[in-house]
């Protein structure tokens, strides 16, 4: 039922762990089945220099976490903020219908971590609307 990409990403997840000196930490959970992701970001300048995660959930949740942490490496915070679950899905070659919600976990946790970073720096948190992942609700800062 899973693509080879999902299985590969799940069996060899990248960026598992924590960052003791993280600049931002975010946690997200899905009420659907109780899955949880915690993400740690290291920020240099305006860019994500390092990312680590821990996830409690199914193979789709773990694979999404892994692929998302790899995708945001080197991104600006604004770019990472607008990472959508559709992009995560794409990177995984898709997920079975009942597992699509698992791909929301990582973008959610990333936004919480970015706001944690902003608040720590004395900045206004960016406004989070409940995200459809489409990047078109108006609350995502424009890329670039």
């Amino acid at each position: 039922m899973y693509t080879e990409k999902v299985i590969e990403e799940f069996t060899n997840p990248q960026n598992v762990g924590e960052l003791a000196d993280a600049d931002g930490v975010g946690e997200a959970g899905s009420p659907t089945c109780g899955d949880t992701m915690k993400i740690y970001l290291k920020v240099e300048g305006d860019r994500i220099a390092d990312a680590r995660f821990r996830t409690f959930g199914c193979a789709a949740a773990i694979a999404s976490s892994s692929v998302a942490t790899r995708m945001i490496l080197g991104m600006t915070l604004a770019e990472a903020w607008s990472l959508s679950n559709a992009e995560v899905l794409d990177a995984l070659g898709g997920l079975p219908e009942p597992k699509v919600h698992c791909s929301l976990l990582a973008p959610d946790a990333i936004r919480v971590a970015i706001n944690d970073y902003r608040v720590r720096r004395g900045l206004e948190p960016w406004e989070r609307k409940s995200c459809s992942g489409g990047g078109d609700c108006g609350s995502c800062p424009k890329k670039g």
């Binding site: 299985i7 799940f10 069996t11 109780g34 409690f56 199914c58 949740a61 773990i62 009942p98």
Partner: peptide
Amino acid sequence: EGESILLLLNARGICASTGSACSSGSL
């Protein structure tokens, strides 16, 4: 989580099952 357990066991050739929400169609 059980589905993750099953898939890693599967990678080692072991067939088992779980009552985890994540592995049921209904969640």
